[in-house]
């Protein structure tokens, strides 16, 4: 009988790391995002038709062999516009999320680690921003920075920063009570090193979840802004303004709304699945447990 578990228990457990199939969520999410990136990449260089070319003879044509996803009220090819819009919409979302995550993380880390009055002042300001609906805040900012692609990125990025800062700060507050942070300080590590080496990596899980869901909000916010006429100015296509433009024709030409909507939903699904897979992959505790 071996009770001496602390010394012998694990030594024999060590097995060579096998290559495993990725998790199902990684496969589905990866496929969806792969298709999206392919469409966006192709759309930037080549589309079946010119997405801006008007053709009044073919307006509001149902999906057919010629126009796979039909045409809109100006006779523009929906598939071409979707592909061209993918590049714009995805680019805007990626940049916006990156902006919000980078600034939000910096603010959250700093605030959570300093605590005391620094934290209180930063968080009071943060909460004031959070109290505004993101879209309203973005509207105000857009009025300042100007309504174009980069204006949207800056405005939405700033609007979504406070929620990232909140989440990161909460995580930091709970992490810094853990003994391994104390251990790092006893070792003599500088505060900045402790933050970078021990606190930041442990914030990744909540950040991934937040960033993926934020990606969806940004796609929708971009469409809402476009809908209000403050987004990417027409005639340039984005998924948002395509969706917005479909509204008057919902009775006669369902495909105008369905396809951009479907594109947005599938992208969100893909990003969420992939985000979960990435989070699990980055967490050593989840590895090998499958």
């Amino acid at each position: 009988m071996s009770i001496d578990s602390t010394t012998t228990g694990g030594a024999s457990m060590k097995k060579p790391r096998r290559m495993k199939l990725p998790a199902p969520n990684a496969i589905v999410g990866g496929t969806l995002i792969g298709i999206l990136l392919l469409a966006a990449g192709t759309g930037a260089l080549w589309t079946p038709y010119d997405p801006l070319k008007l053709s009044f003879r073919e307006k509001l044509a149902a999906p057919s062999a010629l126009h796979w996803l039909g045409t809109d009220e100006f006779g523009r090819d929906v598939l071409s516009r979707l592909m061209a819009g993918a590049a714009t919409s995805v680019w805007i979302s990626i940049l916006t999320v990156t902006l919000a995550v980078v600034f939000g993380t910096l603010i959250g880390l700093f605030s959570g680690y300093m605590r005391g009055w620094t934290d209180r002042i930063i968080m009071a300001f943060n909460d004031a921003l959070l109290a505004f609906p993101g879209i309203l805040l973005a509207l105000g900012l857009l009025a300042v920075v100007g309504a174009n692609k980069y204006g949207i990125i800056v405005a939405l990025g700033i609007a979504y920063t406070p929620s990232v800062a909140r989440v990161v700060r909460g995580t930091v507050l709970s992490l810094r009570e853990r003994e391994f942070i104390a251990a790092s300080r006893v070792m003599g590590n500088a505060e900045a090193f402790t933050m970078a080496r021990h606190i930041l990596p442990n914030c990744i899980a909540p950040l991934t979840v937040l960033a993926t869901s934020m990606f969806g909000y940004v796609l929708l916010a971009e469409s809402a802004l476009s809908f209000l006429g403050l987004g990417v100015p027409p005639p340039a296509p984005t998924w948002g303004n395509m969706l917005a433009g479909s509204r008057p024709y919902i009775g006669q030409a369902v495909w105008l709304g369905i396809f951009p909507g479907l594109a947005i939903s599938l992208t969100l699904l893909g990003i969420n699945l992939l985000g979960d897979a990435v989070r699990d992959r980055l967490d050593p505790r989840m590895r090998g447990s499958r």
């Binding site: 853990r178 003994e179 391994f180 104390a182 251990a183 006893v186 442990n202 050593p284």
Partner: peptide, 16 residues
């Protein structure tokens, strides 16, 4: 030269 061993072995090691 001054080091410390903590009480809770589940929380004193960085899980990552």
């Amino acid at each position: 030269n001054c080091q410390m061993v903590f009480q809770d072995p589940y929380s004193s090691l960085d899980p990552r």
